[in-house]
Design a protein around this nucleic acid. Structure first.
Length: 419
DNA sequence: ATGAGGGTGACATCAGAACC
DNA sequence: GGTTCTGATGTCACCCTCAT
């Protein structure tokens, strides 16, 4: 028996079971709105975790850039190497990782980095429904990826004192992870919380020292599309210090998001993709502030570019409800005027009816209206079938009808009456 | 109730091909 | 050139059972 265990993965687990730190979060708990993953992982999340639909998920990914140190320019890089036959980390992996961090925080930040959890509990934190084998396998797979993927940092890994390490080779995010399937368990533990992982001690060290990169966990979880989630993670970082960031569609799609399709050689398809991003991310909360996205034509007219801005919220701590109550008269007027002014600045704007716009401003949340305008502006460029005002109102209607909690005023006889 | 696993299928995403 | 269709693949939900 003892001899047998030496070579099994269970050997690691059994040795972990013996330690005294047995804080277990038994019941399901509500994950926090904000999450503080380790600084380096959070900073490079957009690079380390790719979209699962990206074409290169089985290959080594390497990113190079330059850093300036003591007046000399040095080459920095980050290499993500999967175990053979295994995928590189995807956004799903990132979701699992963030959930593990949540559990680790919940059980009181144990210094040894050991996290015990049940698969069902982890699902609850991530926001998945428990779906049997499929979910179990998914968690199992991504735990393997987290522990098996080797990450090498050259002049990239920043320790808690702010120093860049020259080289941090062969890091794995989890120093041990083993998903124990029911069949492998013995009777007494067969129906208890059994899963157990250990976070990389250096990462734990940094997190305990407050060397973290805070994220808006609620906003991140709501993003269903994995490519969009990668973009969100990147934008959150880019807009951390700068108020504005922009990038051409070609570079954004192929190098940042690893969308390699031939279809993106066509301008139209790039534009369509950017519109998806605007639809999904415009108005989404960042850790501080709100993300604002717009599409603009590049100066040479050959491509589009995505323009991201961070809009400051008055009190970043308080989250604005998704469906806010009816706006005050004064607020609606100000918003309506602002929107109308923005519309009139465009060519072939049409003649927006102030009363109608104000009426819509009172009825629907501000982010929805602003998003509708940016989508309308993007949609409208190129094809001049109707005026921008028409497209704008049609876009509001579409967004309202897609929204689970809103209703288009014309659809129901009793909601049109306000005031 | 809670810990899981099994089977099935709907839905989303991407990308190329086909169509206008 | 723009736009839509189609198929491969990945993700996730539903409903079931089992054991304590």
């Amino acid at each position: 028996m003892q001899g047998q265990q030496q070579n099994l993965p269970e050997a690691t687990i059994n040795s972990l079971t013996a330690d005294s730190n047995d804080q277990i979060a038994i019941s399901l708990f509500e994950p926090k709105k904000e999450i503080r993953p380790e600084y380096n992982i959070g900073k490079f999340a957009g690079v380390i975790f790719a979209s699962p639909y990206a074409k290169n998920v089985n290959e080594i990914r390497k990113y190079n850039w330059q850093v300036v140190d003591d007046d000399q320019t040095l080459d920095a890089s980050l290499t993500v190497t999967p175990l053979t036959g295994q995928k590189t980390p995807t956004t799903t992996t990132f979701r699992v990782f963030l959930a593990l961090i949540q559990v680790w925080e919940h059980i009181g930040f144990p210094e040894d980095g050991i996290v015990r959890f049940s698969a069902r509990q982890l699902c609850n934190v991530i926001g998945w429904r428990w779906a049997g084998t499929d979910t179990a396998n998914r968690i199992y797979e991504h735990l393997k990826i987290l522990s098996g993927t080797s990450i090498s940092w050259t002049l990239a890994y920043q320790s808690k004192d702010g120093q860049l390490s020259k080289l941090y080779d062969d890091m794995s995010i989890l120093s041990s992870a083993s998903y124990r399937q029911r069949g492998s368990l013995f009777e007494p533990e067969k129906f208890s919380i059994v899963q157990k992982i250990r976070l990389n001690p250096d990462l734990v060290d940094n997190m305990l020292a407050g060397h973290v990169r805070p994220m808006n966990y609620v906003a991140f979880k709501k993003i269903g599309n994995d490519t969009t989630a990668v973009l969100y993670t990147c934008l959150d970082l880019y807009l951390h210090k700068k108020p504005k960031w922009e990038r051409r569609a070609v570079a954004l799609l192929s190098s940042d998001l690893a969308l390699m399709g031939k279809r993106y050689e066509k301008r139209f398809n790039r534009h369509a993709k950017l519109k998806e991003f605007v639809r999904e991310l415009d108005g989404v909360a960042l850790f501080t502030g709100t993300l604002r996205l717009a599409i603009e034509e590049t100066a040479d007219g050959k491509d589009w570019k995505l323009v991201a801005r961070k809009e400051k919220t008055a009190s970043p701590k308080r989250q604005r409800p998704i469906v806010k109550s009816v706006t005050s008269e004064e607020e609606a007027e100000m918003l309506a005027d602002e929107l109308i002014e923005m519309i009139l600045r465009q060519p072939r704007s049409g003649k927006p009816n102030r009363a109608v716009i104000k009426f819509l401003c009172k009825l629907y949340p501000q982010p929805l209206l602003r998003q509708a305008l940016s989508v309308a502006k993007a949609d409208y460029q190129g094809k001049i079938k109707k005026t921008l005002t028409h497209v704008f109102v049609a876009e509001i209607k579409r967004a309202v009808q897609e929204h689970p909690k809103l209703q288009w005023y014309d659809d129901a006889p009793n909601t049109g009456q306000s005031n």
